[in-house]
């Protein structure tokens, strides 16, 4: 519900783009930083579709290029934001936490521990609970 004492609002954010497929994942990151700078609250970030790759810990960027997955993970940690990689999107793209790696008998857990794998219910909950939602496409 909107907070009438201040004009601070809560947001649900969905990202659909992988780090390299389009500029949208970077735009979304800048948007989130700006939301936080203004004192608004991000209730949850939901990484869906290709954005599951933003939870990857295994990508290595050249030193003169930005590592977008790292930047997202840093933002999430710094502000202690609730973030979810959709489990169905994530599994398909090899983003596994230790539980799922075990469950699917894979050797590597590639997902950053700062985010978690969960279902679409987390997104619906976020949209229901917040003042506003926004989608950054693919």
């Amino acid at each position: 519900m909107p907070n009438s004492q201040t004009d601070k609002k809560t947001l649900a954010i969905m990202v659909l783009s992988s780090p390299h497929a389009s500029a949208h994942a970077q735009t979304a990151l800048a948007y989130c930083q700006s939301v936080l700078d203004a004192g608004h609250q991000i209730y949850r970030i939901f990484f869906y579709h290709e954005a599951a790759y933003l939870g990857n810990t295994a990508n290595c960027a050249p030193q003169d290029e930005i590592n977008l997955s790292d930047r997202w993970q840093q933002l999430i940690q710094k502000y202690d934001i609730d973030s979810v990689v959709c489990i169905a999107s994530g599994l398909k793209r090899g983003m596994l936490d230790t539980t799922e790696a075990k469950r699917y008998e894979k050797t590597t857990a590639s997902l950053s521990p700062c985010t978690e794998l969960s279902g679409l219910g987390q997104w619906i909950d976020a949209v229901n609970q917040t003042d506003q939602h926004i989608i950054f496409g693919n």
Partner: peptide, 8 residues
């Protein structure tokens, strides 16, 4: 920052 406010 203004885009953020507009979206809100």
């Amino acid at each position: 920052a203004e885009f953020v406010e507009l979206s809100l």
